[in-house]
Design a binder for these strands. Sequence first.
DNA 1: ACGAGCGCCTGTCGGC
DNA 2: TGCCGACAGGCGCTCG
Length: 272
Amino acid sequence: MPELPEVQTVAQSLIDGQGLAKGIIGRTIARAQVEWPKTVADPDAAEFVRRIQGQTVTGVGRRAKYIRIDLSEDTLLVHLRMSGDLLLGEQEQPLGKFSRAQIYFEDGVQMSFDDARKFGRLWLVADPESVFAVLGPELLDDSIQPAAFHEMLASRNRQLKPLLLDQSFIAGLGNIYVDEALHAAQLHPLAASNSLDRAKSDELLAAIRQVLRDSIKANGSSIDWAYRGGEFQNKFNVYQKTGEPCLRCGTPIERIVVGQRGTHICPSCQKL
DNA sequence: ACGAGCGCCTGTCGGC
DNA sequence: TGCCGACAGGCGCTCG
């Protein structure tokens, strides 16, 4: 589920707090518990629980689709994958059915990692770069200039959609926002990356940034699992709009499969 | 280098 | 009502 805007929204909620629970910056971890050991990618669950105890949260941020929680000694990284969530609560508040790991702070706040499908992962590492090294550039700062983006596309010969989903190419996009961005830029998901001229490449980069910014502004999208009141799902133009008229030309939206992922296009606006 | 297929998991929904 | 397949926001692996 979560792509860059949803991950950003969850990270921000850890800073601001949720409901009655205050944010986590400055809090010290009294203890942690892991219900589903595979949730911890590195180190093993027992070492994770032992090492995290006593560390204090010094900062919270996001890199790609990872939530980054800086601690006094290590960095805690959280990847929500398809169904993960981080929930803050007052201690003694009952855990949800899908809670896979919990962190209990010294002063009554608890943080639960909930994840129905068990794909999400936690890392406790001395250096986050050990995990981040393989990631491509961020999309919302100035780390990609239009000329460089065009060169990145031109130097590969790949289908556009799988390339944009490849986190080592650019970091943060997922299935929803790729479909929305390709529709906005009027590009077919199977178009070859090296077939785009500079103008079209610029249009694509602008569309990606626009859709991400608009979604962050709406607190991301909420589908199946509620997300901080996210409202962007009400602004989808193609994602899960199969059969509905394209807002640009009226042609019914079609669902195809690209790279094993459900893909939504306007067959008139997005010609191959 | 690239793309397809599959595995990891559980829940929901539509069709019969 | 019950069962069964399809599908879901992600990503790592193998294979050709």
